[in-house]
Design a protein around this nucleic acid. Structure first.
Length: 488
RNA sequence: GGCGGCGUAGCCAAGGGGUAAGGCGACGGUCUGCAAAACCGUUAUUCACCGGUUCAAAUCCGGUCGCCGCCUCCA
């Protein structure tokens, strides 16, 4: 099966063919470390984490690079506000990034370069751009001349004329074209700066990605990703810099993820509705967050709301419940039957669907990483497996094992079902029980009391206790093995 | 103004020339003392609207309406 990806620059889905057979070089714009990560950062990170995992699953040897922008106006401002150094601000938020993204279960990229550690590479590239006439010096600043690159605008589909016409850019008389952007900024007092052939200064924002991607992945990348908002100007400028310097194609496939809205509004500082990863993780298990983020196609906008998160949470718990039941059966050491013969028609149908599961999953993922579509087989398979659990036969363990393996293998690519089901369910129970004004002990005593009532067929008393617990959101489940409780 | 995208059941959401995945909810059923969970069944003759192309359109083309993003730092 062949992977197809939507390429922003051609605006269509294309067959994915890396430059070198069997190898993929992927660069994703990381974060500027001046504040905590929000759900939007999480989406980008999770989306490309899934893409990274899937490419490896497909057998590619993937070199994945995700950068940290650790020198920037925003960091400088933040440091000024807090009366500390830019290094401290950057270091602090890099650590926060690792804490948050680690919690979300992101796999580590191959390289995580920091801008400040690649100043010489950037200076080298700027030199080449000056030599080739793509850049010019004004005082201690170096600007990229967009007019020197005839293809400028090819990614974001705009022409220089159009942009000039609608320009809302501040006019800097020293620039040849208002859209020219800084490659190097002359040092100002109190700002971090480095020596360069043009005097002390610091790099512009866009040059770091061109320099670092080239260092770790070569002149042509297979995949370059980031949020949709980076298409212009950031990625457009990267193309101008990289192709201007190397005269080689910069990127084969441009991938851009959509935004996260909060209750149908754009997330923004002015609206004050920035939702940080930390805040979300207080209320939801990381896998709930992941499942939520992949429940829509990565290019579409996704709307965050508590209601939707609850739906996702219940879905995840349901899956884990099924897995827990399966483990219970298999751990009981039931006789292993691997023979296919003798399956009932019903079992045979389930067997076929288990076998088809991985194909359906892969087919969906091959279609531009369509995780939303790839989730459907999970729901269908879990229903099949639950049916097996209800009507066991000699073949059940064999089918359950096959089903669970398929489930977990695909889950691994999405980064879900990575916990022990029992541990997960107990953890969720505890998390949700925290807000209940009853102790575990009190709940269990009430259940014991209800059991006595039930034995005496005192249904009124039994139901009274159930009602009382229900008023706290506690749901009782009577099973042949006793009564269990969970939080709604 | 320019560029891009979206409008699919009560809600969320795939699909994007061959006759509507999946989830939530609702309703009916199995199970249960009653429930819950799980399972079974029902829930879009139709994909914003109007034209056109085609044997065939939710899917392609043109137009209309509505919503959103980017064009300035932004995932």
């Amino acid at each position: 099966m062949g992977l197809k990806v939507y390429n922003t620059i051609t605006q269509r889905k294309e067959e994915f063919i890396p430059l070198r057979k069997g190898r993929v070089g992927m660069y994703v714009c990381g974060v500027t470390v001046y504040d905590l990560c929000h759900i939007g950062h999480a989406r980008s990170a999770v989306v490309f984490d899934v893409i990274y995992r899937y490419l490896k699953y497909k057998g590619y040897e993937v070199t994945y690079v995700r950068n940290f922008t650790d020198v920037d106006d925003k960091i400088i401002n933040r440091a000024l506000q807090e009366g500390t150094s830019t290094d401290e601000i950057a270091e602090k938020y890099i650590q926060e990034f690792y804490t948050d993204m680690g919690a979300l279960g992101l796999q580590e990229p191959t390289f995580e370069p920091r801008a400040t550690e690649h100043i010489p590479e950037m200076i080298e590239m700027i030199k080449r751009l000056l030599e080739k006439g793509h850049a010019y010096l004004v005082g201690g600043d170096v600007y990229y001349s967009v007019e020197s690159f005839p293809e400028y605008g090819k990614l974001s589909k705009r022409s220089l004329d159009e942009m000039k016409a609608g320009a809302r850019v501040e006019v800097d008389e020293r620039k040849r074209n208002p859209l020219d952007f800084a490659l190097w900024k002359a040092a100002k007092p109190e700002e971090p700066s480095w020596e360069s052939p043009w005097g002390r200064g610091r790099p512009g924002w866009h040059i770091e990605c061109s320099a670092m991607s080239q260092k770790y992945l070569g002149e042509t990348l297979d995949i370059h990703g980031g949020g949709k908002d980076l298409i212009f100007p950031h990625h457009e400028n990267e193309i101008a810099q990289s192709e201007g310097a190397t005269e080689k194609p910069f990127v084969r496939y441009w991938l851009h993820n959509g935004f996260v809205n909060i209750d149908r509004e754009k997330m923004s500082k002015s609206l004050g509705n920035i939702l940080t990863v930390k805040e979300i993780l207080k209320d939801y298990h990381p896998e709930v967050v992941r499942l939520f983020l992949i429940s829509r196609h990565y290019r579409s906008p996704i709307d965050f709301s508590r209601q939707e998160m609850e739906v996702v949470r219940r879905n995840l718990e349901r899956f884990y419940q099924t897995l827990a039941e399966i483990n219970k059966i298999l751990d009981e050491g039931v006789e292993k039957i691997d023979a296919r013969g003798g399956l009932s028609p019903e079992e045979m149908a389930i067997y076929r669907r288990v076998e088809e599961f991985s194909h359906r999953f892969e087919e969906a993922m091959d279609d531009d990483f369509n995780t939303a579509r790839a989730l459907a087989p999970f729901f269908e398979l879990s229903r099949d497996l639950n049916r097996l659990l209800q009507n066991p036969s000699a073949h059940t363990p064999f089918l359950l094992r096959r089903g669970r393996d398929a489930f977990l293998e695909a889950g691994k690519i999405l980064g879900i079902f990575q916990e022990d089901p029992h541990v997960f369910l107990e953890g969720e129970k505890r998390r949700r029980a925290k807000d209940i004004p009853l102790t575990q002990k009190e709940i269990e005593n009430l259940i014991k009391e209800r059991d006595k009532a039930r034995q005496q067929k005192d249904w009124a008393r039994a139901d009274e206790i159930r009602e009382r617990l229900a008023s706290h959101g506690i749901v009782l489940e009577d099973t042949p093995k006793g009564t269990t409780w969970r939080v709604r």
